[in-house]
Design a protein around this nucleic acid. Structure first.
Lengths: 220, 220
DNA sequence: TGTACATCAGTGAACGCGCGTTCACTGATGTAC
DNA sequence: TGTACATCAGTGAACGCGCGTTCACTGATGTAC
């Protein structure tokens, strides 16, 4: 039961639909959309091969649903924390470091199932690297309201930076995060081989936070 | 002759082997490894379907060759500029901005064929997101000498930052660059829709440079 | 309460298609004697 | 210089396999009268 990829049905009695979404989310994040077959997903979810087409119509529609289910909760999380932040943000620069720390920790978090930051970062990167524009343009719509919240959120601690500038810096940050999450193991191993810097997640998170805070606060 | 993806044989009389590598490089960068078929590549390169297996053995070996051909010249470019930089780097912080500017411009450069930075950034990102570790571990070896040069290069202007720290910051930078290159159009379009900030490459390069210079110079 | 029909979740087996790879072959060039 | 053989780049057609999708079907539950 402690496999690297554990079966998603484990005793929780989820519906077929949700078991498919859980399995697809994991496998797409790990292996990509084209590299993950319907047979992989249904085997992993312990459902019939035809169930994906029955519940979602097609593989492409399943991919869209996976993203919808990932993005929608982020909106809520941001809204919750926004109110708290406004109250406690006495000193903006400290507050920014606090936020970035939370984002970085979240991005590397590999919880059991929902709110798995590492899976989300991998999916996000795959979405931006997808060949056809289909998924990208689908996401662009859905993504907007989340992004508006993000920019508003970060602007609370970066009032002197223009909105469009914050918007781009958030994307630069996402790029660093996604790349670091995807390459953590390999990059860490190379670092160890070259500089005897034994890889350690805490140090990585600290380094990322330093880099990102400085980048976000850059002067125009 | 001005197609979005132009045929690679155009009058240059390249060998079959090189025509295949050129076509594969472009198509892999645009669409990914799994999504690009041997038939796509050979059609694009204007060669026989069996020529890939004849010259490279298999599709996987072709992928490796594409990376070898991309990475090896970077080593040389760095070595060349290193000498110049040592001479002219009177003020380190200005020199860093100069370097980052060059890197950013290079990363977005879409030249006709060789030294195409945008293609390289896309390939790099795909390599880190590849499902099996095969390509990653193959690259890790080849990549090392290039990375050592990179770190030495950046340390010339960041002498106060530890080597392992510079090593990681370079990867954070690569992540931002790769994400920005891959998503330039979509992110730009969303930015325009949300903030009436009409997308313009010069502004993007300036923003990226600011963000990266600040991140690289972050205090520990 | 009983019967007839409708809806729905799920299934097993098959479909045709495109994939990477293989193989026997061709034709040009190089080498040995 | 001429003949026999070897090497090499390239080719056309086929191979088997795994893919996403479809379809007729089952069995359980809901609804109408």
């Amino acid at each position: 039961m402690m496999n690297t990829i554990e079966s998603v049905d484990s005793s929780k009695n989820l519906s077929t639909r949700e078991r498919i979404l859980d399995a697809a989310e994991q496998l797409f994040a790990i292996s990509g959309f084209a590299e993950t077959s319907m047979r992989d997903i249904t085997k992993h979810a312990n459902v019939n091969l035809a169930a994906i087409n029955y519940h979602f119509g097609s593989k492409d529609d399943l991919i869209n649903e996976v993203f919808i289910r990932c993005l929608d909760p982020i909106h809520d999380v941001l809204q919750e924390n926004m109110d708290n932040l406004i109250k406690e943000a006495a000193e903006p620069s400290k507050a920014l470091k606090h936020i970035v720390e939370l984002v970085v920790i979240r991005a590397f978090q590999t919880e059991q199932q929902r709110h798995n930051g590492a899976i989300f970062m991998r999916l996000l990167n795959r979405a931006y690297n997808e060949s056809q524009g289909k998924l990208r343009s689908f996401l662009a719509e859905r993504y907007k309201k989340t992004l508006i919240d993000c920019v508003r959120f970060f602007r609370l601690t970066l009032p002197q930076v223009q909105r469009a500038e914050v918007f781009w810096r958030i994307h630069f940050m996402l790029g660093s995060l996604a790349f670091a999450v995807a390459g953590e193991k390999e990059i860490g191993a190379i670092g160890t081989a070259l500089y005897q810097d034994q890889h350690n997640e805490k140090a990585l998170l600290r380094r990322l936070t330093n880099f990102l805070v400085a980048g976000l606060q850059a002067e125009a």
